[in-house]
Structure formats: C-alpha cells, structure tokens
Design a protein around this nucleic acid. Structure first.
Ligand SMILES: [Mn+2]
Ligand SMILES: [Mn+2]
Ligand SMILES: [Zn+2]
Ligand SMILES: [Zn+2]
Lengths: 146, 146
DNA sequence: CAAGTAAATAAAAATCATTTCTATTTAAGC
DNA sequence: GCTTAAATAGAAATGATTTTTATTTACTTG
C-alpha cells in the first residue's frame, strides 16, 4: 500500500518546480515539511508533523510548520482536509480521492470512488457557481473501533 | 425557499420530545438556541448564533451557546458541519443533503443529490467499518464571488 | 563568488476559538 | 412548595493558530 520511493521522488521534483514557479524559496524547513507530509499516510496535524520533524531538525519551530502548511495550502501544493475536529489536518497527495473518518479514533482513511468522480453534479450545484472540487466525506466507526 | 412556520413548529415539537427522551431539561436558553438555529439557513457559528440571540436574551452567555451546541450535537439533535474553517458551523436540519462552500466568502449552501444518496459505497468503504453518514462537500466560487 | 536584499525562520507574545471552573439559578420530580 | 441535580453566567483557563520582532538565509546581481 506504500507509495514507491521512485514516485515520491517524482512528486518531490514537481514540488521544487512548483515552488520556483510560485516564487517560493526552497528552504530546508519548507522542503522537509513537505517531504514529511508526502511520506505520511495519516493526514497529520501541524503538531504531529512538528513532532516527527523534530527528530531530524531539533530547532524547527512549531510556528514554521504552521506557516509552511498555510503557504503550501494557499498555493494548492497541499490540501487542508475538511473535518469536524479542532486541529486542522493535511495531506500532500493530489490524486482525486475521498475520506472515511472514524467518529471515535478520528483516523482518516483514503478511498476511491470513480463512479462519483465521473458523475456530473446536479443542476442546482452548477447554478450556484464555479465548482473547484467535489469530495465525499464518510463518517462511521472503523473496524478497529467497533 | 423558506421553510413554513408550520414545518418549523413540527420540528420544534419533535425537538422537545427528543430532549425529554434524552433526559435533557427544557431550559429557556436551550430552546432558544435550537429555535434560532432551526430558523437559520446559513449554518451559523456559535458566535454568530450568540450575536443573534443576544437581541432577545441579552444575558445569554457565549459559553452557554457553545455548551448547548455541543450537547445537542452529541445527542444528534443538530449537526456540526465539516469545514476547513477555524470556527465550527452548525445546522438543525436532519434531512439528507450536501454542501456547496464558497472558498472566498465561506458561505455554505445546501443541495440535494439523490443519485448519490442511493448509490452504495464502494467495497473498500464497507470493509473499512460501519458507515454512519455519507456527504459530499463541494468547494468553489459562488456566483456572487466570481 | 562576494555583497545586497527580500523572504523565511525561531522564539516569544498575542489572539482567537473553545472549554473549564465556581457560585448561583432553575427545571422537574415528589 | 420543596428538594435536588442539571444548567447557567461570568470569569478564568486552555488549546490551536497567528502575529511580532530580531536574526538568518536563499536567491539576485555585479
Ligand atoms: Mn486523503
Ligand atoms: Mn446544510
Ligand atoms: Zn476508529
Ligand atoms: Zn462566495
């Protein structure tokens, strides 16, 4: 289930290019925050990411993690995930997918649903405005929490 | 587009019954918080609701609004809406629907999509655990913000 | 490959959203 | 009406995130 290093390297190359295009400097911290998020499969919060990164960059400050995540989300290089939780959660992947969220343990799991992706929105939605994204959020109890 | 007073009255009767069943006291504040939320069509935050309610109940405290919303959400009498925003937003309606969220003005609009409601989730989701809810969140720019 | 410069960082303080604490009030059962 | 546990108001505390400021650093230009 884990993405290959090769694919991650590709993603990382694209990230550096995208930063340059966006006029964002390639700082050590920024690269490492992105790399850690890209490696993660659990939609970590800023705090979680900070804890993980401290092992390799002990001086990294939490506000830098927050600032970096905000900057990257603003440039659409990462996504802030919709949840009902107090801590915001993030992901680096750009592939179209949806979320299963456990009401109990708050774990967020990706899933694919191509028939939805292909289905056009109802007329009401198109009249509303210009659609940018369309995602399904499923709540429930994961197998582990039942 | 506004719900009739008759329907609101019905909803309100059901709310009182549900509170009794849940062992929740029918306090003036609780009834008014619910009534104000049921009347609202804009998925207000706790703060917004508090501002509106202060007109009629000047002594109502903000923490009571927060506490009440948390209690009612816990008993499934209202919903906390999934968003990427910092302030939590709420709705009283229980009918199955989905959300259009404007990335700019953050306005949340309801829409219906019956073909999705009827469509079974992919196998991957059913293996994940016990599903409780399934909602679509659409981001984009509303007509007004374009 | 040195400056020069604007952007980014670390650390601390501030702010915003929400929760907790405590004394007081009140709904509901008797 | 009286009792009692639940709910409220107001204040203080907490948790998450943002802002401020002085310092450092990536990238430009000569
Ligand atoms: Mn995801
Ligand atoms: Mn709604
Ligand atoms: Zn779980
Ligand atoms: Zn808008």
């Amino acid at each position: 289930m884990e993405r290959s290093n090769h694919l991650l390297d590709d993603q990382f190359q694209m990230f550096e290019t995208a930063c340059r295009r966006a006029g964002l400097r390639l700082t050590h911290q920024r690269l490492e925050v992105y790399r850690e998020l890209a490696r993660a499969e659990d939609h970590p919060s800023a705090e979680t990411l900070h804890q993980r990164l401290r092992r390799s960059i002990p001086t990294l400050s939490l506000d830098t993690v927050y600032r970096t995540l905000a900057t990257l989300a603003c440039h659409r290089l990462i996504n802030k995930v919709d949840t009902v939780e107090s801590q915001a959660r993030f992901e680096a992947t750009q592939h179209q997918h949806h979320h299963l969220i456990c009401s109990k343990c708050k774990q967020i799991t990706d899933f694919e649903w191509h028939s939805i992706d292909a289905l056009p929105l109802p007329a009401q939605a198109n009249e509303w405005g210009q659609v940018e994204s369309k995602n399904v959020v499923v709540y429930g109890l994961c197998a582990h929490c039942q």
